[in-house]
Design a protein around this nucleic acid. Structure first.
Length: 245
RNA sequence: UGGUAACCCCGUC
């Protein structure tokens, strides 16, 4: 079952759900029964390709097989419900999960925070932070990045920056993703000086920019037609062995 | 062996 799960996971990573499903069928024919991991992988893979009804089907099949979903399975399913905007269903699943002895962990909360942010419920997402603390959990850099990203998407750059500093004050280390969302927003709005400041700061802290970070900068520079500087970063990434995509 | 955050492109509106 580990071999099959690993292969199914690989197929899901490349987005080939048809083949993944066939392999699931094949393992059954071979007398190897899929387990909770198999279904979690399939539910997750379906979500990633945007086929949320398929995600639900796999989750239900897991139940029909008499398998008991665990925290990973529930959280994966919650991602799907939130993407559909089914907030109350997502919360019901959270309660169901709790009733089965799986209280939400940091990742479950992060899924809710990000999901609510993406649905435009930033307020509700922030309220969840209180629940996290109540449950003895500490918001991490992923939690903060979701909230910062939401503020940036709303055009509230200053608020985003404030949250960023709040994150630093709590001793959390921003990741390359945190810096990249900030750089993307500032560069995209023509605030290149601020973007450069973050770009410099991240490297001083040993956080290495990746191709997405460079794309964000180059995109901002191209928008304001500063092609010479755009090329400067383009060459710089090559020097660093970061390949343009 | 499985669950969370970022760019670009494309499609529908």
């Amino acid at each position: 079952v580990v071999t099959y799960n690993t292969l199914i996971h690989g197929l899901c990573l490349i987005g080939d759900l048809e083949e993944a499903q066939q392999l699931r069928d094949e393992m059954i024919n071979q007398g190897i029964l899929p387990d909770v991991l198999t279904y979690t992988i399939l539910v997750n893979g379906s979500c990633k390709v945007g086929n949320l009804s398929m995600a639900k089907e796999f989750f239900d099949e897991m139940l029909h097989e008499g398998l008991e979903p665990d925290r990973f399975a529930y959280t994966t399913r919650i991602v799907g419900e939130l993407r559909l905007g089914e907030t109350s269903r997502a919360f019901s699943l959270q309660e169901e999960m709790l009733a089965k002895g799986f209280p939400s962990d940091l990742i479950t909360y992060n899924v809710f925070v990000d999901g609510l942010c993406k649905l435009g419920n930033l307020e509700e997402a922030c309220e969840l932070l209180q629940n996290m603390v109540r449950d003895g959990l500490v918001p991490d850099h992923v939690t903060y990045t979701s909230i910062i990203h939401a503020h940036l998407e709303n055009g509230h750059l200053r608020k985003a920056r404030d949250i960023f500093y709040e994150m630093l004050s709590k001793g959390l280390s921003p990741s390359v993703v945190t810096y990249t969302v900030l750089i993307h927003a500032y560069a995209g709005k023509g605030r290149l000086e601020a973007a450069f400041t973050y770009f410099t700061e991240m490297q001083e802290k040993g956080v290495l920019p990746n191709v997405i970070t460079y794309n964000a900068l180059i995109n901002g520079l191209c928008k304001v037609r500063r092609m010479d500087q755009a090329y400067k970063f383009f060459y710089e990434m090559e020097e660093k062995g970061i390949y343009p995509n």
